[in-house]
Design a protein around this nucleic acid. Structure first.
Length: 837
RNA sequence: GCCCGGAUGGCGGAAUCGGUAGACGCGGAGGCCUCAAAAGCCUUUGUCCGAGAGGGCAUGCGGGUUCGAGUCCCGCUCCGGGCACCA
């Protein structure tokens, strides 16, 4: 499309100016009130795609708007530059991951600059930078010292295609790898874990005060999964110690201690260490067979959904042993069953089929008895509805009979504790964070394994541990570092004897768990960041990113912030890193997410050429609510063109107003009423756009600016034209309001109008004159029986009586009333009168 | 199965506190300008009845509360997302 101005030239000019002038560089001792605006730093995947454009358009708007509002705005950016794609490319093409990554960073960076997004580039952070690796490793060693990092043998998700372990979130619900699609296997490996569970309670409680989308908080609460209940011991029959063997009891966890009277059997997970001990010789074959089946059905499969959403068939085997119900003394059978998971609670349960659906299903399949301990509603059993988990009166429960469930739980726990049978406990669904990756392109875990001294941290003065470049990139299932003798072989820092380096690298989520702290002060060689600088900028006032990070990144970052405070690296810092979070909607195309891996990207480059960065930014702001997903369709290009047209109209408006003289011909003087009307519209727009930006309603902010441009065009060309002063005010306000949204063209137009003044983006955000915002006449709606019959222009300060008589005097209302007398007149001056018959 | 969103013209969406439904834009129709086109400008555009004035119907479906409901309550349908044997 032919444009009204030189889009490319102007955009290039201002991008250069902002960089040369350091407009958005900010010092840590800046006296203005600090504001930390942050977009989640991107994985460098090459030139920006529309998702980036959307994200960084929102972020840039916040940065420029807050700056005009008088804040010192910290606007840093960096690159989450470790990760699998670079290494997979190395395996495929032989290009070193660093070469590959640096090139893609350069491409992404160029896109961000081309978009007109402004940052303090002096603060750029790259995860693969040795300086960053070093502090990552120092932090890891702090965790090690604090007992928050440990090694354990654990069943892990292994992807045979990617040849590495996967985090739980990288496994899809059908048990396949999200990257390669291969079925994920279970392997037992010695791995590094971070003890995030130590902070479970605090991470849960801290959510309450955060200004985050409610659904993100809900997702984190569910992920942490706090369950209150009790652990109790079930005595194993025949194992009371009288036969010389030590007494044996089975520890189970329950959230329903009130239902103990209804326990009719108990279950061990197939992996439970006591299974062998409690299995009688006669039952061994069936128990072994069950365990074999369970091992084949991985934990992934056992915890994930089955086809059609129904729970998996529950399979079990009787151990031949009985356990004792602690409240009734009854002896009940002990089973091994695959619906009980070793990874949660104690790996053993008391089963109460009457009040638990899973136990009910198992009891039905294995012919086990059911004892109700809560009275179900009338007709429940007649309808064959199975387990009843709702509220009700306790029955068949001895000392708990007649109580409500909550009270009964308390009494049951008190009884357990009084008799020494059990204790009140809390369990979490959250598990410790597995951070080992058998890959090359990540931060090396800085420890040495010594045959004599075990795990020894690499001394701080020897950090960073950097991976060598001359490795063979082959998918072997071990880190390429493991087969690099020069790297692996080393000496023990304690005894000097031969030792081996750890060859696993860290999960890249470690890198992103504290980068926002590094941004506060990346200038020091001798510290990760100056704690005073962190205290100055933190917490992030506005964090912006995708909903896909709702759980993991945001949870890990909250965890790390606490760990850095508690290990002395960030003394005095607030414990929550991100006070306000905004999650933007994703861009879809043909029903799926627009992404590189789906191959349905629409490159921003062509729009930079046609409507410019300004036009494309405006489109992303205008197209719909920022939090909503939007569908990219065939019509989208026309909407983008429309945004370009709007900027042309703005340009022409400014041109025309600039050329217009202060006086018109005497036969057509400026109309004072039209001038006042335009001034009112201008100031109302200032008020509306300011409010829109504060509540993330960018689409209506753009719409309000469009209305003002339309009004100004009309006010200039009509017979009853507004004064040049009124038009100039409208123009100035438009440029100020649009400055954060379409920064280049507005900066240029401002400079042409005000060559001797401060640049547009250094101007203060405008305020509306309240006297011009308030209306003096309003349209009063007159309804008869709730239907609009007339609209009257009335004084805004009209009183109730006056409004009533004006409404009743309306001929249209009189016609609608006919002969009838109004039964009631509802008057809401000055907006509405409703005459009710 | 459970939890959370959402459904408004041909399309994206607006309606901030229960008070004019459809702002703004896209698309469509008609016109001006032009030798012609592009660009631009103007008018119009929920739907039905009506020549018109005007009126009826309209915010996924069915009820309810209210003088008044897109907005609140109850019950559904469909779409999207998250969780899913967590004891």
């Amino acid at each position: 499309m032919a444009r009204a101005y030189d889009v490319a030239g102007i955009e290039e000019k201002w991008q250069r100016r902002w960089a040369e002038d350091g407009t958005y560089q900010v010092e840590n001792d800046d006296p203005r009130p600090p504001f930390y605006a942050l977009c989640m730093y991107p994985y460098p995947s090459g030139p920006a795609h529309q998702g980036h454009v959307r994200n960084y358009t929102f972020g840039d708007l916040v940065v420029r708007h807050r700056t005009m509002r008088g804040n010192a705005v910290l606007s840093p950016i960096g690159f989450d530059s470790f990760g699998l794609p670079a290494e997979n490319a190395a395996i495929r093409t032989g290009t070193h991951p660093r070469t590959f990554t640096d090139q893609r960073i350069a491409e992404l960076k160029a896109s961000l600059v081309r978009l007109g997004a402004v940052y303090d580039w002096r603060r750029e952070v790259r995860s693969h930078d040795p300086a960053y690796i070093r502090w990552n490793q120092v932090i890891f060693e702090r965790l090690l010292d604090a007992g928050l990092a440990y090694r354990a043998n654990a069943p892990v998700n292994w992807c045979p295609g990617c040849q590495t372990v996967l985090a739980n979130e990288q496994v899809l619900s059908d048990g396949t790898c999200e990257r390669s699609g291969d079925p994920v296997e279970r392997r037992d490996l010695e791995q590094w874990f971070l003890r995030i569970t130590a902070y479970a309670d605090e991470l849960l409680a801290g959510l309450d005060d955060l200004d985050w989308p409610e659904r993100v908080k809900t997702m984190q609460r569910n992920w942490i999964g706090r369950s209150e209940g009790a652990e109790l011991d079930l005595a194993v029959v025949g194992r009371d110690g009288s036969d010389g063997r030590p007494p044996l009891a089975l520890r189970v966890f329950t959230t329903r201690p009130d239902t103990i009277f209804g326990m009719t059997y108990a279950v061990l997970a197939p992996e439970h260490p006591l299974v062998d001990d409690v299995t009688t010789p006669a039952q061994r074959p069936v128990v072994d067979e069950l365990r074999r089946l369970a091992a084949a059905r991985s934990e992934i499969e056992r915890t994930a959904s089955a086809e059609g959403g129904a729970a998996l068939e529950k399979r079990g085997a009787y151990t031949g042993t009985q356990v004792v119900n602690p409240f009734t003394g009854a002896e009940v059978p002990l089973f091994v069953a695959d619906y009980v998971l070793m990874g949660y609670g104690t790996g053993a349960i008391m089963a109460v089929p009457a009040e638990d659906e899973r136990d009910w299903a198992f009891a039905q399949a294995y012919g086990l008895p059911v004892v109700r301990t809560v009275r179900p509603p009338e007709g429940w059993d007649d309808e064959g509805r199975g387990a009843y988990t709702g509220a009700g009166e306790k029955i068949n429960s001895g000392f708990l009979d007649g109580l409500e469930i909550a009270t009964a739980k308390e009494r049951a726990i008190e009884a357990l504790e009084a008799r020494g049978l059990g204790v009140r406990t809390v369990h979490y669904r959250l598990r410790d964070w597995l951070v080992s990756r058998q890959r090359y392109w990540g931060c090396p875990i800085p420890v040495i394994h010594c045959p004599k001294h075990g795990v020894v941290p690499v001394p701080l003065d020897q950090l960073p541990v950097l991976a060598p470049d001359d490795v063979a990139f082959e998918p072997t299932g071990k880190s390429p570092l493991a087969s690099h003798e020069g790297f692996r072989r080393t000496t023990c820092p304690v005894c000097g004897g031969p030792a081996e380096r750890e060859t696993d690298t860290m999960d890249t989520f470690v890198d992103s768990s504290w980068y926002f702290l590094r941004f506060c002060d990346p200038f020091h060689e001798d510290m990760a960041f100056d704690p005073a600088a962190a205290r100055h900028w933190m917490p992030v006032d506005q964090y912006i990113g995708g909903i896909e990070h709702a759980i993991l990144h945001l949870l890990y970052a909250r965890f790390f912030t606490r760990v850095l405070i508690d290990t002395g690296l960030a003394p005095g810092l607030g414990r929550e890193p991100f006070q306000r979070l905004f999650t933007q909607g994703m861009i879809r195309m043909d029903g799926t997410k627009m992404s590189k891996s789906k191959g349905n990207l629409i490159s921003p480059a062509r729009y930079f050429e046609s409507v410019g960065a300004d036009g494309l930014r405006l489109f992303h702001l205008f197209v719909g609510p920022p939090a909503d997903d939007f569908d990219w369709t065939e019509q989208t290009d026309q909407v983008i063109d429309g945004c370009g047209r709007f900027l042309d109209r703005l340009w022409r408006l400014l041109e025309a107003v600039g050329e217009r003289g202060g006086e018109r011909a005497p036969e057509h003087p400026f109309d004072p009423a039209a001038s006042l009307a335009l001034r009112r519209t201008t100031h109302r727009t200032v008020a509306q756009v300011s409010a829109d930006l504060d509540r993330w309603s960018y689409n209506t902010a753009v719409a309000h600016c469009m209305e003002l441009v339309n009004s100004a065009h009309k006010a200039m060309s009509s017979e009853r034209a507004a004064s040049t002063e009124a038009l100039e005010e409208a123009c100035d306000m438009l440029l100020l309001l649009l400055a954060p949204m379409a920064p280049h063209v507005t900066a240029e137009l401002w400079e042409r109008r005000h060559p001797d003044e401060l640049a547009l983006h250094l101007q203060a955000w405008p305020t509306a004159d309240p006297g011009l915002v308030a209306e003096d006449t309003v349209t009063m709606v007159v309804q008869v029986n709730g239907k609009v019959r007339d609209r009257l222009e009335v004084d805004a300060s009209i009183g109730e009586e006056e409004a009533r008589s004006a409404a009743l005097a309306s001929p249209k209302v009189r016609a609608a009333l006919g002969d009838a007398e109004p039964a009631r007149v509802v008057v809401r001056p000055p907006k509405l009168v409703n005459v009710v018959l």
